[in-house]
Amino acid sequence: MIRWILAACALAVAAGAWVLSGPDPLPEDALDGLVADAANGERVFIAAGCASCHVAPEADAAVAAPVMSGGRRFESQFGTFIAPNISSHPDAGIGAWSDMDIANAVLRGVSPDGAHYYPAFPYTSYFRASAQDIVDLAAHLRTMPADPTPSLDHEIGFPFNIRRTLGLWKLMAGGPEMVLAGDVSPEVARGRHLVEGLGHCAECHTPRNGLGMADYDAWLAGAPEPAGDGRVPAITPDALGWTAFDIAQYLSTGFTPSFDTAGGDMVEVIENTSRLSSEDRDAIAAYLLALPRSGG
């Protein structure tokens, strides 16, 4: 009898885990009434740094119409992730995707056939973007060149190669609430949208726990370099010690206030931020200076 009860419990737990780990796509009406603005889509594309990961290895990402053929490799403690083709090619890329397909990918980390994406695709930040952003982005992506290079499979070992487990990971990882909560000025709100959402700054600047989930208590307080060598600096106001002007100039030119320059992966980030509007760079600075001190 006890054996049957235990078996029933195990089955219930397994069924619960199966249900909880399922994909959580957007409601069907999530994009209703939104009209795409491809020009804003290009701003979203640059702010989100799409090209930095999705161009071919060694290709220049900071051009007007980069070829988003994928193939860059990203080492991590869980294995090697390989950026897929998101060019407008109908078979190799995402040329045949609907707006809803793209929105579910970016805002929910769910593929058109209902599988979870790995969070190397930083949807744990992008899910703070707006549906309007994504509709605009989709329109811009369709204007970009098509490339037939097939996407490669990630090189991920067991158990991380079971995508269904990512459903539970997503539930535990938290979000998509804004981290800097509450009413803020329009400029800080714009900066929050860029830093916490599209710009996905925290993906590198916030430490992670053993399961690779952001430690929201150490928001933007610095972290080990993901590739394993060196550290990504803290960018909280006390750790940085920079003025709004210093931050905006750094994002524009790559020069620190002492006229050192950005290095490592931040060089590619600057290639993107230097192409934002000066208002957006000022907004990022205003947001960073509005963060609580890290005490670090």
Binding site: D229, T261, V267
Partner: peptide
């Protein structure tokens, strides 16, 4: 040019 060198040849720092 400074950044290009620092991108590949200098360790990220804290």
């Amino acid at each position: 040019s400074c950044g290009s060198c620092h991108e590949n040849y200098r360790q990220s720092n804290n």
